[in-house]
Simulated scan of single mutants.
Amino acid sequence: MAQNHQPHVQTKQDEFVEIPMNIERGTATLINQTGGNRKKRQWVTIVICISFVVIGQSIARLLENFYYDQTHRLDYDDSRQYDGAWTQSLLQSVGFPLLIIPFLLFPSRKQSNPPPITSDRPSVKYLAIIYPCLGITMAAHGRLSATAKLSIPFGIFTLIYTTQLFFTSVFSRIINKTRFNRWIFISLAFAIATGALTLSTSFGGEPDEAEESWGKGSWSAFFAAVIFSLLLCNVQNAFDSVISKRDEASNRKPSFAVVMEMLTSPCLAASVMSAAALLISGEQHDLRREMEGFSKGKASYVLAMAGQAAAWQIYWVGIVGLVFVVSCVFSNIISVITWPIVSALVVVFFNFMDDDFDAFKGAAFATAVLSISAYVYKLKKEEKETDDSSS
């Protein structure tokens, strides 16, 4: 389903097995293969991944707002402005042990003739380099985005952060050799509009005028957008260039289980980096003070932090799953068009600066629907054209 894949992906003719852990990857499985049941399973996986993105991002952002609201972030002074920044970065990756659960619920089928270990050695070397690099990228993105949101008004952060769609398109063309057609451009245009129209969203950790640091916040938001784009494109590149070749060399079927593999090691590296930075900065001393001063009590504080860690893992499974099944561009589009849902939920559950539903939020929902509709139409159109040519 991705716009462009290496030839070895196009020739796969493996059978589908169980969803969600053992579904095949690649454009060929949805567009170039004719099995109706296989196509249906592929679309079901896409819907599940989109649901994970919506649910994970919504819960994580709501709990993040809850955290800043209950720690009275709006009352902080300059010396405590960036309290919790490394903590928020750590929460985005530290829940990775939860990824073991799918392997317990959906055990993979054993191969009757397991491949020799030597066939995996080249890919192991590459992955040993790729995974830590992805983890460092995740940690840097988490820290930069947290810093940006604590430095500039959230509306400005949103406008700058939306540029990730542009960078993902550019990097995808360079790194993944993606080919774009008019429907992808239309989808991207509506997704950019969706991100920009969420500028009226409020945020519990937004700085007051005395705390604003426009230079630091703007550059942090900009580099967070660039790094997130690079992360998605390199995840797709790892799937296409390393993992697919490894599975072919080992005579294994490419399954959704590699999404968990793709997340576990980088999240471990990101957690180690964020935890080390948290300890070096002395931020661990603030955690006890925050817990004791949490308005809803210590138990609510622990639950809010644990809930964020779990929600972020749900989000990452959805995001990386969409890269695996479709492409990094589609994954990024889905991530951005989820923002209006988060914006609406913030209005429902919180009352920051008298935030309310407005024309911008309504327009953002409309452009989000148009964005995903354009991309899905593109995928269905390619599927139909392939079916016609094969009949």
Rank of each mutant, 00 (worst) to 15 (best):
C49W: 07
V54Q: 01
I55F: 13
G56W: 05
Q57P: 01
S58E: 01
A60K: 00
R61N: 15
R61Y: 11
L62G: 03
L62D: 00
L63I: 00
L63W: 00
L63K: 00
L63N: 00
N65I: 03
N65M: 02
F66Y: 14
Y67M: 01
Y68T: 06
D69E: 14
Q70P: 01
H72E: 05
R73Y: 12
R73K: 12
R73Q: 09
L74W: 07
D75Y: 02
Y76Q: 05
Y76S: 06
D77C: 07
D78K: 08
D78Y: 08
S79F: 04
R80H: 15
Y82E: 04
G84K: 10
G84T: 02
G84M: 05
G84R: 12
G84A: 06
A85T: 14
Q88L: 14
S89A: 15
L90S: 11
L91Y: 02
L91P: 03
Q92M: 11
V94L: 10
V94W: 10
P97G: 05
P97K: 03
L99R: 07
L99H: 08
I101H: 12
I101D: 07
P102E: 07
F103V: 01
F103T: 01
L104W: 06
L105G: 01
L105F: 08
L105E: 08
L105W: 06
P107D: 03
S108W: 03
R109L: 07
K110S: 14
Q111D: 10
S112H: 09
N113R: 01
N113E: 08
N113V: 05
N113Y: 01
I117M: 09
T118R: 11
T118G: 04
D120H: 12
R121Q: 13
P122S: 00
P122K: 00
S123N: 10
S123D: 10
K125E: 11
Y126I: 15
L127I: 03
A128I: 01
I130P: 07
Y131M: 13
Y131S: 07
G135V: 04
I136W: 09
M138E: 11
M138I: 14
A140G: 06
A140R: 02
A140C: 10
G142S: 08
G142I: 15
R143I: 13
R143E: 06
R143F: 12
L144I: 07
S145G: 12
S145M: 09
A146S: 15
A146N: 09
K149A: 12
L150Q: 13
L150N: 05
I152G: 08
I152P: 05
P153H: 12
P153F: 07
F154E: 15
G155K: 06
G155V: 06
G155M: 06
I156W: 09
F157G: 04
